[in-house]
Each structure stands twice: as structure tokens, then as C-alpha cells.
């Protein structure tokens, strides 16, 4: 099997420099709509109207975006005559609504953190992006993060999907089977807010209605770097979006 070995070596390095430097390669993230100042109040209202999930709210001449609800349909970007501003970043991890303080995992977990993923009704995209963290581009092992096969050894629970009725019990069982301290990350718009599936007789409409969520990673799907950012936030190597400022505010 030596030729695979050589072939692997010949291929060279592909791994991103993130988090030491920001990743600038094209296509690592679909980006996101950001607060946009429009020329007129009507235009802002139009932008809010075009959003099928109500993630955009118009206030005077500007349109604000609640990324938790955005499903990346891009209708506000293409097709709408005055497009929303679009920002190509990926550090999206936030605290859930109403949570002010954030406590990362203890220092011991910085270089050894084990992750279990639960697909609770995911469409496959978020799960696929989580899986991409194992590929040579993102290679999360270099950061001391590993997927583990059993919740018994897991420190972090990544939940994708809006939590379907049939997955509710397995999800709870997984959470209960994890030792303390444990963190729950909701990955993707569905897990954060229910996404397009919302709340229905088979969907709980987000992880927070079933489990206490520690961090939310929005995006439909959240790209690998956004998930990686979330995992770095769990270890305390990065701060959640807006957390610094809230600290400053209190100080």
C-alpha cells in the first residue's frame, strides 16, 4: 500500500490556517446578509417582505437580519431589486437568546475534546458539513478535537436538525449518557430555530425546546469553518459573536 502513502505525501498540505489566520479561499462560506441601509423606507420594507422566514425586519430605512432564522435562500440577494449587503465571513457562533454569561469548558479540554453528533431530523447538509471537519482541508484533529462513537466519552454534543418526534428520545438519551461537564451546540438554522420546518406536530422547532443549548451556530447549512468556530468557542479559544461587547457594556 506504499503508493497510497506516497500519493498522500505528494498531494501536499491543504489544511486551512484557521484559527491562526483567517481563511480567505473562495467558497468556504456562503456568507450571510447583514444589516443594510437602504435609500428608502419602501426598499427596506421590500427587503423584509421578500424574506420567506421573516429573518429580516425593516426599521426606518434599514433592514436588520436575525441570522438565527436565515435559511440562506438568497432571495434577498438575487431577484430582489435592491439587494441586501452580503458579508462573506463564518464566525457566527452566538449565545442563545436570553443567555448572558458564557462559560467555556475547563482548560483541560482545550487540546482534547470529544464530540458526538446527533442527527435530529437534519436534511443532510449540516451533517455533511460537520463531517467535512475530518477532511484534510479542515482537519480538526490538529486542534485536539475528535469525534467519538459513544456519548459516554463525549464532552460536546452537536445537534443538527429541528428535533423530530422520532429522534427526541434518542437525543435525550444521548444527552443523558454524557458525563459532566457537557456542552450542547445547535448547528444550523433548523437546530437553532426550526428553520423551514418550524414547529409542527413532528418537529420541536429547534434544540432549545428539548435541551439546554449552550451555543448556537446559525446557517443553512453552517459551513465547516462556522462549526469549527463554534467548537473553538466551546474550548474558550474564541469568543462568541457579540460576547466581548456585552462584557464591555457591563463593565
Amino acid at each position: 500500500m506504499s503508493f497510497w502513502f506516497w500519493r498522500g505525501l505528494r498531494k501536499g498540505m491543504h489544511t486551512t490556517r484557521y484559527p491562526k489566520a483567517s481563511e480567505t479561499a473562495a467558497g468556504v462560506t456562503p456568507g450571510r446578509p447583514v444589516t443594510t441601509q437602504f435609500a428608502s423606507v419602501q426598499q427596506a420594507a421590500l427587503a423584509a417582505q421578500v424574506c420567506p422566514v421573516g429573518a429580516i425586519t425593516a426599521q426606518d430605512g434599514s433592514a436588520h437580519v436575525d441570522l438565527d432564522f436565515c435559511i440562506h435562500c438568497q432571495r434577498c440577494r438575487f431577484g430582489n431589486s435592491p439587494p441586501m449587503d452580503w458579508q462573506s465571513d463564518y464566525e457566527w457562533t452566538t449565545l442563545p437568546h436570553g443567555l448572558r454569561r458564557y462559560e467555556p469548558l475547563p482548560r483541560a479540554y482545550r487540546r482534547s475534546m470529544h464530540i458526538i453528533v446527533v442527527d435530529a431530523g437534519d436534511c443532510g447538509a449540516c451533517l455533511h458539513e460537520v463531517k467535512q471537519l475530518n477532511n484534510p482541508f479542515y482537519n480538526m484533529h490538529r486542534l485536539g478535537m475528535f469525534f467519538t462513537a459513544t456519548p459516554r466519552t463525549a464532552d460536546v454534543l452537536l445537534v443538527v436538525g429541528p428535533v423530530t418526534e422520532n429522534m427526541r428520545v434518542p437525543l435525550l438519551k444521548t444527552y443523558e449518557a454524557m458525563p459532566n461537564p457537557k456542552k450542547v451546540l445547535a448547528v444550523g438554522a433548523c437546530a437553532v430555530s426550526g428553520g423551514i420546518f418550524g414547529q409542527s406536530f413532528v418537529s420541536a422547532g429547534g434544540v432549545s425546546s428539548v435541551l439546554p443549548v449552550d451555543l448556537e451556530i446559525p446557517g443553512d447549512p453552517a459551513p465547516p469553518l462556522a462549526i469549527l468556530h463554534g467548537l473553538l468557542v466551546v474550548t474558550g479559544r474564541k469568543a462568541p459573536v457579540g460576547y466581548q461587547s456585552s462584557l464591555e457594556r457591563s463593565a
Binding site: 468556504v28 456562503p30 435559511i71 440562506h72 440577494r77 438575487f78 447538509a125 467535512q132
Partner: peptide
């Protein structure tokens, strides 16, 4: 991953949504 990035660069979405 290359194809996903190319899709994103081309269409704006890695999974061709929207």
C-alpha cells in the same frame, strides 16, 4: 470539498440552494 467550494463560488451556495 473542492467541488463544494466551486459550487459556492459559482452559485453562492455550497449545496446549490436557492
Amino acid at each position: 470539498e473542492r467541488l463544494l467550494r466551486a459550487s459556492c463560488q459559482f452559485t453562492g451556495h455550497r449545496y446549490l440552494f436557492g
